[in-house]
Design a protein around this nucleic acid. Structure first.
Length: 471
RNA sequence: GCCCCCAUCGUCUAGCGGCCUAGGACGUCGCCCUUUCACGGCGAAAAUCAGGGGUUCGAAUCCCCUUGGGGGUACCA
């Protein structure tokens, strides 16, 4: 394997980068980066029906977001029709492929007949025996035909790096269609032609393609090319073990983005779904993954998508990400209308408490408008006339402070608590509720310092005000 | 139907014949830290290695069967 590594990711334009596809792309990317090779992006849009540039755009955006940069492409199969036609002609001339003139109706009838007889349908291979002259004549006369590959009579071995060696007996596959009767080249054909043309050395993709791989091997041979190294990945399933889809909450990279998942976290999480570096490493930078990656360490079995673990990982990344970058990332979510300086400090206070950017953004809301609602259970417990009196009293103490810093606020609160013969929590909790609307927040006095004297005292007094009066 | 793949704690996984009385991580449950909530630290519960046969002095690791999941079988990708 001295040839430079060349791999590709070849999604069809569905408009969403499914996490299964994202992980496939990621492993291809890792392999290319590991070996200093090339990562090629190719769009499989031979199915003209659903092929809109917009859908491709979304996939590219998601890849860019995830940090999966490609070196060549994106190539569109729809742009490569002349190449497919040329290769199809060559295969026909070399006798490796042949014209078959059955109509879809005839094929359908044969299929039904086979089914009725309890046998599996397989194309008869009838077209194989049509002499070339006759074939040319009928084609010239305008008779409809498809181009089929002449499958070899010997068994086909697929030696997969991940799934192991599999032998498909001779005759297990029939002569499949390369080019439709309307001249459109079909998926299997385009894939192989492109892989040869692009000098792809390793094909890393989902197991759903494994059963089709012998077709590809036969095609590579017919094309006079050595098949690439194959690595078929297990599927990614939802938490219920079913195929992962939108009904599991999210299935596309862009949906995770909208949920406030960091691209680095999703990258790391996806990498671990089917790959293990061997030691007990969990959190890794891209550079570490590149250094450690190898196809041999990919696992063959399907895995479930554990959103809980993603959430944890995301929280880890959130806590470690510099505030400035977080502020940038937060741009996609609603933020209170305060200055960046306040936001940056607030982010520092809140980031270890949030699992997603969405959570972080909503935590930041308290630096905007005064709270209009208060946690009901907390207010029942922490409110009341006595609490109101204390709040008013301590507000006075705070008011008198020479400087409104968290240190002096804390000192004042401690002094108050001691004088009143209560624990610090007894006075801090009502203040917290008054200031943030919630019984849980970052360190109270730091929050107050950030909020400033005026806002903090206004909130404390307003909260005291809404408490029932004595008698 | 036929062909193919997969199978270790609830989940992601380590393990590639003896180091396994099966290791790590998420989640769960305790305790500690603490003005609350997180973070962090410590600890616990959690896998008869799907079941059954072999092979071997020795099997989670190799082979076969069964069961359960998944995929393929298109003039879809």
């Amino acid at each position: 394997m001295s040839a430079p590594v060349r791999v590709r990711f070849a999604p069809s334009p569905t408009g969403s980068l499914h996490v299964g596809g994202a992980r496939t792309a990621l492993y291809n990317w890792l392999l290319a980066r590991r070996h200093g090779g090339a990562f090629i992006l190719r769009i499989e849009d031979t199915d003209a029906e659903r092929n809109k540039p917009e859908l491709t755009r979304q996939i590219l955006d998601a890849m860019t977001w995830l940090g999966l940069s490609w070196d060549e492409g994106p190539f569109l199969q729809s742009d490569r029709a002349p190449l497919y036609r040329e290769v199809a002609d060559r295969l026909l001339n070399e006798g490796k492929a042949y014209r078959a003139f059955e109509t879809p109706e005839e094929l359908e009838a044969q299929k039904l007949a086979a089914e009725a007889a309890g046998a599996a349908f397989r194309y008869s291979g009838k077209g194989r025996d049509i002499p070339r002259e006759e074939s040319d004549r009928r084609a010239a006369a305008g008779e409809k035909f498809v181009l089929r590959l002449r499958m070899p009579d010997e068994p086909i071995v697929v030696d997969d790096v991940v799934q192991g060696r599999t032998e498909f007996p001779a005759g297990a596959l029939d002569d499949f269609v390369l080019v439709r009767s309307d001249g459109h080249p079909l998926y299997h054909f385009c894939v192989c032609v492109d892989d040869v043309d692009m000098r792809i050395t390793h094909v890393v993709r989902g197991v759903d393609h494994l059963a089709n791989t012998p077709k590809h091997v036969a095609l590579f041979r017919a094309l006079g090319a050595e098949p690439p190294v194959f690595a078929h990945l297990g599927m990614i399933l939802g938490a219920d073990g079913k195929k992962l889809s939108k009904r599991h909450g999210a299935a596309g990279a862009e949906e995770f983005r909208a949920q406030g998942i960091l691209p680095e976290a999703l990258f790391n999480f996806l990498a671990l779904l089917g790959w293990s570096p061997g030691d007990d490493k969990e959190r890794m930078t891209k550079e570490e993954m590149i250094a450690l990656f190898s196809l041999e360490r990919l696992g063959p079995s399907p895995s479930r998508f554990d959103h809980e673990k993603l959430s944890w990982l995301n929280g880890q990344y959130l806590a470690d990400t510099p505030n400035e970058r977080l502020l940038e990332l937060l741009g996609e979510f609603p933020l209170p209308g305060v200055g960046n300086e306040v936001l940056l400090s607030a982010i520092a206070l809140h980031k270890s408490r949030a699992k997603t950017l969405v959570e972080l953004a909503s935590g930041l809301a308290l630096y905007g408008a005064d709270p209009s609602t208060f946690e009901e259970a907390a207010e029942r417990k922490l409110g009341g006339p006595e609490a109101a009196a204390r709040l008013l009293a301590i507000a006075q103490d705070f008011e008198a402070l020479p400087e409104f810093s968290h240190a002096s606020l804390e000192a004042a609160a401690r002094a108050y608590a001691e004088k009143a013969g209560i624990g610090l929590g007894k006075i801090a909790q009502p203040i917290r509720l008054a200031v943030t609307g919630s019984a849980a927040s970052p360190p109270l006095f730091e929050v107050m310092e950030l909020l400033g004297k005026e806002t903090s005292l206004r909130r404390i007094r307003a909260f005291a005000d809404r408490q029932p009066k004595p008698e």
